[in-house]
Nucleic acid binder design. Structure first.
Lengths: 217, 217
DNA sequence: CTATGTGAAGGTGTTCACAGCA
DNA sequence: TGCTGTGAACACCTTCACATAG
C-alpha cells in the first residue's frame, strides 16, 4: 500500500499523461456508451492500455457493455482535478507566452490562465484578451491573490531557473516550462514538465532520412 | 568510422531525444574537455545515461580523461543529421505557427524554417521575417522546390490529418504536430512527434495538489 | 456471449558495478 | 589513478490471456 489516496497503487506518469486524451476521445465519441476499443481508437492507444489505465482508479466500466461516457468523463475530470478549476500564471509575455495565453483561452477552459507577468516595462500593462500583463515583481502576490496552482514559464533561458525557484517557493507544484534550458528541481513534491522546442526539432532531424515509428509528446 | 550494419543494436528513441540536450550542454561547458559527469549535470541526466547514450554510436571518449568537446559536438551533430542543414515547412500561420517561425528563426539555426503556408487568403502573402506566407495548395511544390525534409503542423484539429497525409505523400519523414488531435500514421518510415498543449496542461493539473517528481518533454 | 478487469509474461529503458584502457 | 564503456540486474510499462461479471 503506497502513499496517495487510500488504497491506490502508485500511478505511472504515463497513465496520467494519457488520461486527457481519453477525455478528449469521450467528447469525440458522442455516444453515451463507449468501449475501450472505441476509446483507444479515438485516443490513439490500444484497448488494453485504456482498460489498464482506467482500472488504476477503479472499476468504471460494465462488463459486457463498456463505459458510460458521461460518468467516465466525470471520473477522469475528477482524477485530474479538472473539476476544481485549475488556474495558471504565464511568466513571459513574449511571442510564445502571448500565443499560449490566447491559445489556451480558446481551446481549454479546464485550465484557466489567471495572470500574465513580464519583466519588460514595455509590455507591462498591455492587454491580452481579458488579462493585463503585470510586472514580474508581483508574481508571488498574484499567485496568492488569485489562488494559482500552475506556472507556465515562457521566458528566455537565463531567467528561467529563477522563475522556477520563485514559483516553487510560493507553493506552485505543477510547472510547465518552454524555456530552452534544463531546469533543476530538488523538491520532490514539485512536478516540472519541460517542453523544449529547439531540442524537439533537433531530435526530429534524426528521422529526416530513413526512419522509424511515431511517438507522442 | 562505426557503422550500424547487420549487428545494429536498435537505438532507443529516448536516447535520440537526449542527444540535443547533450549538444546544448557542450556549448554551455565551454571547456575543450568534458566528462560524462559535467555533461550530465548540464543536460539534466545521470553520467551513466550520458555514457550509455553516446556508446550506442561509438567510443567517442578517452578513458581516464573524458570527451573532447569539439569532436563530440561534431559527432552528435552528425548523428542527428544537423550537419546536413535540415529545412522545415510550417503549416498554419496562426498565432502558434507565427510564434514558431519567429522563435525558431532566433534560437535554432540548425533547423531552418524554409516555408510557411496557410489556407486562409487573409494571411497568404503576409511577411514573416524573411518568409512570405504561401497558399496551402503549394505545399507539395514547396517541399520539392526547397528540399524540405521536416513538417511542422500548426493548424486546427479538423485539418491536421489531411496535412499529415499530404506531407507523408510528398516524402516528408519527420513531422512535428501541435494540432490538438490524435494523428494516425501507418507508414512505419515516418516519425510523428505530437505536442498537444491542451493535453499537456490537463495532465499537469493532476499534480497541482500533492505531487511527485519532475519529468521532461 | 460480450467487454471489462487483472495477474502473468514480455519488452524496453535505466541503474549498477566493474572491467578496460589511457 | 580516473573516467569511459558495458554486461548484468533492476525497475517500469505494455501486451497477453483469461477469469469474471453482466
Amino acid at each position: 500500500m503506497e502513499r496517495h489516496d487510500m488504497g491506490t497503487r502508485r500511478i505511472p506518469d504515463t497513465t496520467i499523461r494519457r488520461l486527457p486524451a481519453y477525455l478528449r476521445a469521450l467528447t469525440l465519441a458522442g455516444h453515451d456508451r463507449v468501449t475501450s476499443e472505441v476509446l483507444g481508437q479515438l485516443a490513439g492507444y490500444t484497448p488494453e492500455q485504456v482498460r489498464k489505465d482506467l482500472a488504476y482508479f477503479g472499476a468504471f466500466g460494465t462488463r459486457g457493455v463498456g463505459y458510460d461516457a458521461l460518468s467516465l468523463t466525470k471520473e477522469i475530470r475528477h482524477i485530474l482535478q479538472l473539476d476544481l478549476g485549475v488556474r495558471a500564471v504565464v511568466i513571459g509575455a513574449g511571442r510564445l507566452g502571448t500565443a499560449l495565453v490566447r491559445h489556451t483561452d480558446e481551446s481549454s477552459r479546464d485550465v484557466a490562465i489567471a495572470a500574465v507577468v513580464d519583466i519588460n516595462p514595455a509590455v507591462i500593462g498591455r492587454q491580452l484578451d481579458h488579462l493585463t500583463v503585470e510586472p514580474l515583481d508581483r508574481l508571488e502576490e498574484l499567485v496568492r491573490e488569485r489562488d494559482i496552482g500552475m506556472g507556465i514559464i515562457a521566458v528566455p533561458p537565463q531567467g528561467a531557473q529563477a522563475v522556477l525557484d520563485r514559483l516553487v517557493n510560493v507553493g506552485v507544484r505543477a510547472i510547465l516550462s518552454f524555456a530552452p534550458k534544463a531546469l533543476v528541481v530538488t523538491d520532490p513534491t514539485v512536478f516540472v514538465q519541460q517542453i523544449d522546442l529547439t531540442l524537439e526539432m533537433q531530435a526530429l532531424s534524426y528521422f529526416v532520412g530513413t526512419s522509424q515509428r511515431s511517438g507522442s509528446s
